[in-house]
Design a protein around this nucleic acid. Sequence first.
DNA 1: GGCCGCCTCCGCCATACGGGAGAGGACCCT
DNA 2: AGGGTCCTCTCCCGTATGGCGGAGGCGGCC
Lengths: 212, 212
Amino acid sequence: MSTRIVVADDQDDVRIGFRLILDSQPDMTVVGEAADGRRAVELARHLRPDVLLADIRMPALDGLEVTRLLAAETRVIVVTTFDLDEYVHAALRNGACGFLLKRSGPALLVEAVRAAMAGDTLISPQVTVRLLRHLRAAAPAPPAEPLTERELEIARLVAHGRTNADIAAELTISPGTVKTHVAHIQRKVGAANRVGIAAWAWSSGAVGGPGA
Amino acid sequence: MSTRIVVADDQDDVRIGFRLILDSQPDMTVVGEAADGRRAVELARHLRPDVLLADIRMPALDGLEVTRLLAAETRVIVVTTFDLDEYVHAALRNGACGFLLKRSGPALLVEAVRAAMAGDTLISPQVTVRLLRHLRAAAPAPPAEPLTERELEIARLVAHGRTNADIAAELTISPGTVKTHVAHIQRKVGAANRVGIAAWAWSSGAVGGPGA
DNA sequence: GGCCGCCTCCGCCATACGGGAGAGGACCCT
DNA sequence: AGGGTCCTCTCCCGTATGGCGGAGGCGGCC
């Protein structure tokens, strides 16, 4: 069974190029093309392809909107020429299963389709490097002094907005003890108040991020 | 000029496989192999390859440590069988230029090397999907009521640990006004206190995250 | 003109928080 | 046995915060 693909892009030559690349794969078939966003949605709903490749800049409906509308029913890979941060985030937030730059080359295009089929997400390396800037930026700001296990535990609770009394109850210790821990954490991470602890925890990945 | 590569992995067959794949590329040459981390560092410092492929689980020194030691001088792509979150973050934090699962296949291996050479970062699609979990999870939690511009501005400042007086000074308004805004924000996002606002802001992408 | 949302400001009061200092017990390592 | 780290708890005090209600000015919309 071949992977059925729809290509949506307002430029004829791009669609032709994609079709050429994908059809040359033994297990992939381009079953439809759309030149604007509205048509892309119609086509996807009608043909029910396994994967939709959607350009961002399209008439009628842009690729990000198309992604939002179709994410629940079709795997959408967003393709674009411009690696603007807003695009990447909007695309992934809207449920895209991949983000490709047109200049990434045929091999990655094919791999992105395979990844999407497997339920994974391939992002162009040029884009990934920008996505990770935040993560890298967070790295050089680890606490000068590392937190102990208990402190980390409390820091996480603080970061979720729990009060000292709250935390004390949860850990079955005295509120005073929580205050002591919080004070230590503040000193260690250089926070002026508990919100500073929250900011540190969220930005350094101690919570919320994959680290949680 | 061919891309010079060193492969570090304690399993013979893995090294052989990588060498086979990479040497079959016209523009890539494996110039050395190491079976443990210490040897990998020595080899990299001696041969000065363009790219080092490093397994995580190795004797003497694991791939994450190797990455940390060499990141400044060599492009390191971390390769592993296990897509544990801690691995990914540690690797990228330590300066890796790529993160590959061994089961990702030859095409991605080659692409990862090319990406590293171009200063980009390729991450296995299987891993990316986990990296993005929090980003996706953040989307379905928008505030029931949307914040006004002013409120969003203040929410961001709150999320960074600023006090009301602080914020008032920055925006040249009265501290009382800030309190009013904060109270409104709390009600809208359903936070019991200002740290709850911070948690909302960080997790929903209003600040810090890619959304900022 | 009237309605409404937004931003701005005011006061009062109870509570949570942050700073500082001190201290005992459990555990580990030397 | 002694030193170290970590967790636990206590007291005091000043400030920041959160909850309450009220109010005026401004701009857009009907």
